[in-house]
Simulated assay, not measured.
Amino acid sequence: MSETDPFGAVREVTVDGESHKMADLTVLEEQGLCDLDSMPVSIRVLLEAVLRNVDGERITEADVRNAASWEPEVPDVEVPFNPSRVVLQDLTGVPAVVDLAAMRSAAERAGEDPTIVEPEIPADLVIDHSVHVDYFGSDDAYDKNVEMEYERNAERYKAIKWAQQAFDDFEVVPPGTGIVHQVNLEHLGRVVHSREIDGEQWLLPDTLVGTDSHTPMINGIGSSAGASAVSKQRPLCLASRLR
């Protein structure tokens, strides 16, 4: 037992010959802290995230107990939640890029390495809210509309391209790929992530904070605010298009 695993719930599992860690909720049930069969799937997913992220400071043993004691009536406690990813559309994502850039500038002015500023949670930015239809009814209408999109927003897209290259956990889906809901559902969603965290490989459910009103539609295929079939497909890269 330790501050980061106060319930002895971290397990080693082997998938396709590779070792992974995971947070095992059945340990909490065995200790009488919860009844998993009567607990909604969304609450189980939340409980897993709290259990996996215990560090003794921001997330404590008490937080796990609070999440495990869920009842239908809203309890008078706060439960911390760290999603596995964030999806942004361009209207909300660009201001976030500006904030990250400003924080890197501040770090550099303070004599610190600016690369210490990174998104704490992996984020995908889908550019879909600025496309105009200037051409239609022809075979090359799509290509012409996308080209106009890059011309109109060249300065903004250069900033986004810089962010994609500067930050390790920031990916961009370029204009013309699709609306954020469709892209999230078909390309970004996962059922389970296999992710390296602090030098160790973990398995964790796909949980999502989305900044677009329709993003939670992905709930219907199996996770807390987002998931789809396990996929290795990643977003297209802006770097190949922006000049």
Rank of each mutant, 00 (worst) to 15 (best):
T92C: 15
L91I: 15
A96E: 14
L100E: 01
V98W: 07
R104N: 02
P95T: 05
Q89D: 13
A106V: 08
T92R: 11
D113K: 01
D113H: 11
P119L: 06
Q89R: 11
M103Q: 12
I116W: 01
V97R: 03
G93W: 01
A110D: 11
A101C: 10
A107C: 12
S105R: 15
D113I: 05
D90R: 05
A101Q: 14
P95H: 01
P119H: 13
L100R: 01
I116F: 02
T92Y: 12
G93K: 07
A96I: 09
P119N: 04
M103P: 02
A110P: 05
V98F: 14
R104G: 07
E108Q: 13
A102L: 12
A107R: 00
A101Y: 11
A106H: 03
P95A: 09
T92G: 15
A101M: 13
E108V: 03
L100A: 00
V94C: 08
A107Y: 04
V98N: 15
E118H: 05
M103C: 06
V97A: 07
L100Y: 02
G111D: 04
S105T: 15
A106C: 09
E108S: 14
V98M: 09
E108P: 08
I116Q: 13
A96P: 06
T92N: 14
V117D: 02
D113M: 08
D90Q: 05
T92P: 04
A96H: 12
V97Q: 04
V94L: 14
V117R: 01
A101D: 15
D99F: 10
E118K: 03
Q89A: 11
D113P: 05
R109T: 07
L88V: 06
D113C: 08
L88S: 01
V117S: 01
I116D: 06
P95Q: 05
D99Q: 13
T92S: 13
R109E: 12
L88H: 14
I116M: 15
V117P: 04
A96Y: 12
L91K: 10
Q89T: 15
V117E: 02
G93L: 01
R109I: 05
A101P: 06
V94E: 10
G111K: 03
V87A: 12
G93T: 06
E118D: 05
L91F: 09
E118I: 10
A107W: 00
P95S: 01
D99L: 12
E112N: 09
P119Y: 07
L91G: 08
A106M: 11
I116C: 02
V94K: 09
R104L: 08
E120Q: 08
A110L: 10
S105D: 13
P119V: 04
E108L: 11
L100T: 02
E108D: 12
M103V: 00
A102W: 07
D90I: 11
G93C: 11
I116K: 06
A110M: 13
D113A: 12
A101W: 12
S105P: 05
L91C: 07
P119D: 04
G111F: 02
A110R: 10
P114M: 07
G111W: 01
P119R: 07
A106K: 06
L88I: 06
D99A: 14
A110N: 08
P95V: 08
G93V: 06
T115I: 06
I116G: 03
L100S: 01
V94M: 15
L91Q: 14
E118M: 01
A96F: 15
A107K: 03
G111Q: 04
V94P: 03
G93R: 05
